[in-house]
Design a protein around this nucleic acid. Structure first.
Length: 893
RNA sequence: GGGCGUAUAACUCAGCGGUAGAGUGCUACCUUCACACGGUAGAAGUCCCAGGUUCGAAUCCUGGUACGCCCACCA
């Protein structure tokens, strides 16, 4: 009988029934993972809803490089983003995940330059404009790839808010920050010692330097005192790892307190190869214990020497140029490569008797993180940013908890780095990037730093202004990402609503490059942290824990994994292994386990579908028995734990809980029990299992969206009330579902049933009885009588008799469970030897288990000092085991 | 030279003050009407070492050892 109000629902169901789909025997992930993304997008399922009245929740993607392909690290970080975003969306937040890509200055330019080289040309031949156009064309072609891969992964990003770090609006943000920082004195230009990459022909920041230990030499060089020996000492000896730089020496330094050289300070030395005279100076940067205690000072080519030169007012002679070749200042060595010059200098010194000795020495050399070239410290005119003030704010934000880290230990590194932070070299001699908004007057040299190019020089009025050719470090624009994506510097509605973002998820390898700089920029320009929480995701390694690398050939490509095991299996594997603070060892075994799990959920759903008929919907009133009450409690407890785990970024715990909820509770226990009821099931029983599946699908959806959406379509969609969205991606997190608040039944009955069931199965196995052989069974636990049919069917028994009578007879095998005895009538099948051995083994096992329990309960200090609950628990366990022991003893006679 | 992390079953990893867990693998058995990408029963661990705190420690503290990572201007 239909109620009037059900008419709509009825017609809706009729419509849906036409699309009803029978489920295949196995989950076809290849079809499912390509079917749904378009439908989600078409339904605008991932678009932010600023006017919804919901509470906003936002996250911004760590923008992948446009040069990049999706690797396992991306798969992990984006899976975790998606799990959280879908979870928050389901919880009823206006969840916004902003996607985007990074222009990745150096990496991208290198990529295109490599192409040019293959074509036999280069960027200089092409000219700046044509080269830049070429990179843009390349970007247009490649950007789609990474975006396609994010769709393949199922990322629920809001594509209407897609951003690129070189977008005009982001460029405006960059210019504003640059200009205002300059005017505030926090950005300045000047000659400083920087790390120069001779291969890429650009300056780098200190962070882009990698140190590598190499076996080298320590050369000891003799510098004679001008005018002959003093007090019998004819010369000083210095030790160096870079003898070629001696051509640029302008002093030799000793420690001011070093008694050995007191008489030398202020004296002049004859430079062995150039004939220049250089002074002996005193500075405390010298370590008297190292080498000879004397250091050659080359202010133009060593950061330490540069600083010492500044302190002491020493001259600076540049003998190595930007091309890493010796300059004219190097005299006879001019034009030589720096390493060739080293050999020649050493040979000449040796020949002329200035080389005292050579030792083997392991030293750290600085390499370019990008090109791998040996860097050359050079004095160069560059732009710098003074970040001390911002660093103090970022430091405070973490210390006060305004930004919370997971895992927390990263705060220690954060504190150290921000406390010792140096000015940041932000200019790069690259074409691809944000052009520095500074113009120099061609006539008078006046510098203009403005948002737009000035029409004329403010000093002389000349109209010929030349823009600085350099671009900014890629990370300069990345630092502004959490507010530039929302339209800053315009005060947009998005900016007001979604800043600060709720959480940042990223790798700890870019803690300084990105996280710290975002914190500094956010605090400086928005006056508020850019994110309240930071979750540092793990590193994905190969199955044996090795770092993946192309050279090792152990790289696992996520796209291949998605083809072989399914996107959902990949996502679930990553999530279940993502324990905070530990690396992930990605293995095929784990992927197989996840794939099997997906298939398990699929087949459990298929079972539900087979057992339902069209009349059963989510509006059908469910009926609950013991099994249902038990499962409801499992669902309720697990969902509460999953929710808490996700709030605290314990993705592995959340997914592990759901895994066992589905496999152990729903499939292994509940469905097995339900099979007995559903054969002749009432609509209420069928409605109950439909509800349970619906809840499971909603809980699993953030982890395995394609699988669950596919099942939802096949089983749930046509049974929904019309008010519910037909897409699972739009449905609510099930924790507060009314059905889950139901209580009833005896919560201990199902666990007892499980013990008895497995007890019967064990008795059969122990006696070597064919599992299919149906024998009569007996049980002393009368309260399990309602489960007679389930026991008979699952353990395949002929009958189950519940009785208080003596169960042990000569023809039966007997076993002990908590509070009772089980028996199987085996007649001629019984093996008395095996029976006795089994009972003796059981006896020994119980004795062994009881030993520590008895000892602890006999321990006076434990009983008096331990909390009562702990003692009571132990006592309960002990009593239960003692009881079993007594039973076993009785059975043995 | 500093700082941090990790050491648990054959493998990869959870757990982090109250009787050792998962996945995979292994052994034996089962094609029972959702699933062999399945089911049942099992075997398997001085929780790196040594001290300490505690009634009780894989879990907290101290000191080692072994791996791994980050930072730092010893030429």
């Amino acid at each position: 009988m239909l109620q009037i109000g059900d008419a709509d629902l009825e017609s809706e169901k009729a419509k849906a029934r036409m699309h009803m789909r029978e489920m295949d025997k196995a989950f076809d992930f290849r079809t499912a993972q390509t079917r749904w993304y378009e439908q989600w997008e078409a339904a605008k399922a991932f678009e932010a809803a600023p006017h919804s009245g919901k509470e906003p929740w936002s996250i911004v993607i760590p923008p992948p490089n446009i040069t990049g392909n999706l690797h396992m690290g991306h798969a992990l970080v984006n899976t975790l983003h998606d799990v959280l975003t879908r979870f928050k969306r389901a919880q009823g937040f206006d969840a916004l995940w902003v996607p985007g890509t990074d222009h990745a200055g150096i990496a991208t330019q290198m990529m295109v330059e490599r192409q040019l080289k293959a074509e036999g040309t280069d960027r200089h031949q092409l000219g700046r404009e044509a080269f830049e156009a070429r990179i843009w064309a390349w970007k247009e072609k490649n950007q789609g790839a990474i975006e396609h891969q994010l769709r393949r992964l199922g990322c629920s990003v809001d594509w209407t808010r897609n951003r690129f770090t070189l977008d005009p609006s982001l460029n405006k943000a960059v210019r504003k920050v640059f200009v205002e920082s300059y005017k505030a004195g926090r950005i300045y230009r000047g000659p400083r010692m920087i790390q120069w990459d001779p291969a890429l022909q650009t300056a780098l920041s200190d962070l882009e330097v990698k140190y590598e230990e190499r076996r080298g030499k320590l050369w000891y060089l003799r510098y004679p005192l001008t005018g002959g020996p003093v007090n019998g000492v004819a010369d000083v000896v210095v030790a160096t790892t870079r003898p070629e730089t001696m051509l640029g020496d302008t002093a030799v330094a000793v420690h001011p307190d070093d008694e050995r050289f007191q008489g030398m300070i202020g004296k002049l030395l004859d430079h062995p190869l150039t004939g220049r005279q250089i002074p002996v100076v005193a500075d405390s940067f010298v370590d008297p214990a190292f080498g000879t205690g004397c250091v050659k000072v080359t202010p133009a080519h060593d950061p330490n020497d540069f600083a010492a030169g500044q302190r002491l007012g020493l001259a600076s002679i540049t003998i190595i140029g930007f091309d890493a070749k010796m300059t004219a200042e190097a005299g006879a060595y001019a034009g030589l490569d720096r390493f060739e010059a080293r050999k020649r200098v050493v040979a000449d010194l040796e020949e002329q008797g200035f080389l005292v000795k050579v030792e083997d020495y392991v030293n750290k050399i600085s390499l370019s993180d990008r090109s791998g070239a040996v860097l050359e410290p050079l004095v160069s005119e560059q732009w710098f940013m003074d970040v001390k003030e911002a660093a103090a704010k970022a430091l405070e934000a973490v210390n006060t908890g305004a930004i919370q880290f997971t895992p927390e230990h990263h705060a220690a590194v954060w504190n150290h780095w921000l406390t010792h932070i140096q000015d940041w070299c932000i200019s790069r001699q690259l074409v691809w990037g944000h052009r520095i908004p500074a113009w120099t007057c061609a006539k008078c040299g006046e510098l203009h730093v403005e948002m737009e190019q000035p029409s004329a020089c403010c000093a002389c009025g000349d109209e010929q202004l030349i823009q600085d050719p350099d671009t900014l470090d890629t990370w300069f624009s990345s630092a502004l990402w959490p507010f530039s994506v929302f339209g800053w510097p315009e005060q947009t509605a998005d900016l007001r609503r979604y800043y600060p973002t709720s959480v940042l998820i990223t790798g700890y390898d870019i803690l300084f490059f990105w996280v710290a700089r975002m914190a500094m920029a956010g605090l400086t320009w928005m006056g508020e942290v850019p994110f309240r929480k930071v979750y540092f995701n793990s590193l994905v390694r190969d199955a044996s824990g090795q770092k993946m690398s192309k050279t090792k050939g152990n790289v696992i490509d996520p796209l291949e994994v998605m083809e072989e095991y399914g996107t959902d299996a990949l996502r679930f594997s990553l999530a279940i292994m993502a324990a905070p603070g530990t690396d992930i060892a990605m293995s095929t075994a784990r992927l197989e386990a996840s794939r099997n799990f997906c298939n398990k959920l699929w087949n459990a759903s298929r079972f539900v579908q087979i057992n339902l008929d069209d009349s059963i919907t989510l509006a059908t009133a469910p009926e609950f028995g013991e099994a249902e009450f038990w499962l409801i409690k499992q669902l309720r407890d697990t969902l509460a734990a999953v929710t808490k785990a996700l709030e605290e970024f314990r993705f592995h715990e959340a997914s592990d809980l759901l895994y066992h909820l589905v496999w152990d509770d729903f499939c292994a226990t509940y469905i097995e029990l339900a099979k007995v009821q559903l054969l002749s099931g009432t609509p209420g029983q069928k409605a109950a299992i439909l509800h349970f599946l619906d809840i499971l699908l909603r809980a699993l959806h953030p982890f395995v969206p394609f699988l669950t959406e596919d099942i939802h379509e096949a089983v749930i969609a046509q049974r929904l009330p019309i008010s519910e969205p037909a897409l699972l991606a739009l449905r609510a997190w099930p924790m507060d579902e009314a059905i889950l608040q139901t209580n009833g039944g005896d919560p201990t009955i199902i666990p007892r049933f499980q013990e008895v069931l497995s007890g019967f199965l064990r008795l059969k196995a122990e006696q070597g009885v064919d599992p299919a052989k149906r024998v009569p069974a007996f049980c002393s636990l009368a309260e399990l009588e309602p489960f007679t049919e389930a026991l008979k069917s699952i353990a395949r028994l002929e009958s189950v008799t519940f009785t208080k009578d003596e169960l042990a007879t000569p023809t039966r095998t007997v076993g002990v469970v908590a509070g009772g005895i089980l028996a199987l009538e085996l007649a001629g099948l019984k093996d008395p030897v095996a029976e006795k051995a089994k009972l003796e083994k059981e006896l020994a096992k119980l004795e062994k288990e009881l030993e520590p329990l008895r000892a602890r309960l006999a321990d006076e200090s434990f009983v008096t000092k331990a909390p009562e609950a702990a003692v009571a628990k132990l006592r309960g366990q002990s009593e239960e085991k003692e009881q079993r022991l007594a039973q076993v003893k009785a059975l043995l006679g």
